[in-house]
Structure formats: structure tokens, C-alpha cells
Write a protein that binds this DNA or RNA. Structure first.
Length: 157
DNA sequence: GCCAACGTTGGC
DNA sequence: GCCAACGTTGGC
């Protein structure tokens, strides 16, 4: 038996990559490249195949949790960091000594209706969520199992 | 568009 | 090691 399945939340600006983009992607899979924050990277390094992810639309109207994905490949070097022409190029990172990692994720389901941030803020059971912390900007963050269940029940099953 | 919060950089 | 300046995130 492996460790218990863990839960996460990942933010994406829908103008850059939305859950609809994930739906349309080959195999409904994508690599999660472009993360350039150490804490977010470290969380991705903790992810195991089968871990569940809340897909969140940031800088959206309204900002909302829009569905569920799961980890299908564990952390490996993010090649966009080596690409001088890429927006997320980072000279500190090299193929020999990569600084930045990514994981692959796969769509599990898109919610029938998005769960907007203000709805989540009104849930007594979600008070401690990282997403709802004032000034929180972390794009990859852990979610407690009780928060996960609360959100999934809000989404309806 | 504004701006608070946060992370990173670089001078000292 | 401190901290001011700067850039980014992301809600509003």
C-alpha cells in the first residue's frame, strides 16, 4: 500500500489555459509547465500519481474552482525553463541542473457549474483554506481532505 | 485600472 | 544579513 492520496489546488488564468483547453487537449492531458515559484515547485515534487487536483480559474470573472484533475506523471524537469525564447525562460536552470519541475495532469471532470471564490468564502468549513487566505498567491497549494469533501459536495455528484 | 501582498534582486 | 526597489499575482 502506498501513502494516502493527497489533494491539491492549481491555478490557471483561463486566458492562458482553461479547463476547456484541458478538455480539448489530446487525452485530456497536459503538462503543467511555467511554475516559477519555489514553494509551488516543492508542492509539485510531493505529488504522486493519482493525487487529485482542484482546477482553479484565476484572474477570471468570477474567479472559481471549475473542476477536478489528477496527477498522471510525477515531477520532472520543465523544459520551458531552458528555452531562451520562452516566456518562462530561466538562465539559472539547465538540463544538467534543472531548477524547475512540472507534473502531468489529466481531466477528471469539469463541474456542471463553477464554484466562485465568494461562494467558497461563505463556507464555514473552508475558513482555513490556503486559497482564501488574505494575500495568498501560491499557484500550487495543498488542500485538506475535509476541504476537498466540502468542495466536492458543493459541486454536486 | 488600482493596489495590497508577496517574492526576488542587488547594493551596501 | 539587511532592506529598498522592483516585478508579479490576482481580487476587486
Amino acid at each position: 500500500m502506498g501513502a494516502a492520496r493527497r489533494y491539491w489546488l492549481m491555478k490557471s488564468e483561463p486566458s492562458a489555459f482553461s479547463i476547456e483547453d484541458l478538455q480539448k487537449a489530446p487525452g485530456q492531458r497536459t503538462c503543467w509547465d511555467g511554475v516559477r515559484n519555489y514553494q509551488a515547485r516543492n508542492y509539485m515534487r510531493e505529488m504522486k500519481i493519482g493525487d487529485q487536483i482542484l482546477f482553479y480559474h484565476s484572474n477570471a470573472d468570477p474567479p472559481a474552482v471549475v473542476g477536478v484533475a489528477e496527477v498522471v506523471r510525477e515531477a520532472y524537469p520543465d523544459p520551458t525553463a531552458f528555452d531562451r525564447k520562452d516566456k518562462h525562460f530561466d538562465p539559472k536552470s539547465s538540463p544538467a541542473k534543472p531548477t524547475w519541475d512540472m507534473v502531468d495532469i489529466k481531466l477528471v471532470r469539469k463541474f456542471a457549474a463553477p464554484l466562485p471564490l465568494d461562494l467558497l468564502r461563505r463556507q464555514p468549513g473552508l475558513k482555513r483554506m490556503e486559497l482564501l487566505r488574505r494575500g495568498s498567491r501560491l499557484s500550487v497549494q495543498p488542500v485538506r481532505s475535509e476541504e476537498w469533501s466540502r468542495i466536492l459536495s458543493l459541486a454536486g455528484t
